[in-house]
Computed example of a mutant assay.
Amino acid sequence: MASEYHRGDQDISEQEATYVAFGNFTKWGCLFIAVALVMTTIWFCTDLGFFGGAVPGVILLALGIVFFRGKPAGSH
């Protein structure tokens, strides 16, 4: 039975897909939490109100999308 095992011959596509999905979930989830914290903190803890919190939240979201996007397939 042990002789049937050959190192490196197993299909790891499911593990790779799970790894990529977990990384993406973590990345985008952290961005969502950061935007929510910034918006609610400014909204409720200052006199700026809802729009005073929404503007920095939208800016943070836009910057996060720009910096967190995946690289093109051809780049390294």
Rank of each mutant, 00 (worst) to 15 (best):
residue 29 G to S: 02
residue 67 F to K: 08
residue 74 G to E: 15
residue 44 F to P: 00
residue 66 V to M: 10
residue 55 V to N: 03
residue 28 W to A: 04
residue 26 T to R: 08
residue 57 G to D: 01
residue 22 F to H: 07
residue 53 G to C: 05
residue 36 A to K: 02
residue 34 A to K: 01
residue 55 V to C: 04
residue 66 V to Y: 13
residue 49 G to P: 05
residue 67 F to V: 10
residue 48 L to K: 09
residue 17 A to E: 09
residue 14 E to W: 06
residue 66 V to R: 11
residue 67 F to Y: 12
residue 2 A to T: 13
residue 11 D to E: 10
residue 28 W to C: 04
residue 29 G to L: 03
residue 27 K to Y: 00
residue 17 A to C: 00
residue 59 I to R: 05
residue 62 A to V: 14
residue 9 D to W: 10
residue 56 P to S: 07
residue 36 A to H: 06
residue 46 T to W: 02
residue 4 E to F: 11
residue 60 L to W: 01
residue 31 L to I: 06
residue 44 F to A: 07
residue 34 A to L: 06
residue 35 V to G: 00
residue 35 V to F: 01
residue 61 L to R: 00
residue 31 L to C: 04
residue 40 T to N: 09
residue 60 L to A: 09
residue 33 I to S: 04
residue 49 G to D: 08
residue 64 G to H: 02
residue 30 C to H: 03
residue 18 T to D: 11
residue 55 V to Y: 04
residue 24 N to M: 10
residue 4 E to R: 14
residue 30 C to G: 12
residue 41 T to S: 14
residue 58 V to W: 06
residue 3 S to C: 08
residue 39 M to H: 05
residue 2 A to S: 13
residue 61 L to E: 04
residue 64 G to Y: 03
residue 7 R to E: 15
residue 23 G to E: 08
residue 63 L to V: 14
residue 41 T to P: 00
residue 12 I to E: 13
residue 75 S to C: 10
residue 45 C to Y: 07
residue 64 G to E: 09
residue 35 V to W: 00
residue 67 F to W: 13
residue 17 A to K: 12
residue 28 W to K: 08
residue 40 T to V: 09
residue 50 F to P: 00
residue 40 T to C: 02
residue 25 F to L: 14
residue 46 T to I: 09
residue 42 I to K: 00
residue 49 G to R: 05
residue 24 N to S: 12
residue 73 A to Q: 15
residue 18 T to E: 14
residue 38 V to M: 04
residue 24 N to R: 14
residue 15 Q to N: 11
residue 28 W to I: 07
residue 30 C to R: 03
residue 74 G to F: 13
residue 19 Y to R: 14
residue 1 M to D: 11
residue 20 V to G: 02
residue 28 W to V: 02
residue 60 L to N: 02
residue 21 A to P: 00
residue 46 T to N: 03
residue 61 L to I: 03
residue 20 V to Y: 09
residue 56 P to V: 06
residue 22 F to D: 08
residue 12 I to W: 12
residue 14 E to N: 11
residue 16 E to P: 00
residue 73 A to Y: 13
residue 55 V to D: 02
residue 2 A to V: 13
residue 69 R to Q: 13
residue 63 L to A: 14
residue 56 P to Q: 05
residue 34 A to C: 07
residue 61 L to D: 01
residue 44 F to E: 10
residue 40 T to H: 05
residue 35 V to T: 02
residue 4 E to C: 10
residue 47 D to P: 07
residue 57 G to H: 00
residue 17 A to P: 02
residue 73 A to L: 15
residue 24 N to D: 13
residue 25 F to N: 08
residue 56 P to G: 05
residue 50 F to R: 00
residue 52 G to E: 02
residue 70 G to R: 12
residue 50 F to Q: 01
residue 68 F to C: 13
residue 49 G to I: 02
residue 36 A to T: 05
residue 12 I to V: 14
residue 10 Q to E: 15
residue 3 S to V: 15
residue 47 D to F: 04
residue 30 C to A: 13
residue 51 F to P: 01
residue 57 G to F: 01
residue 76 H to V: 12
residue 74 G to L: 11
residue 48 L to S: 10
residue 27 K to E: 04
residue 8 G to V: 09
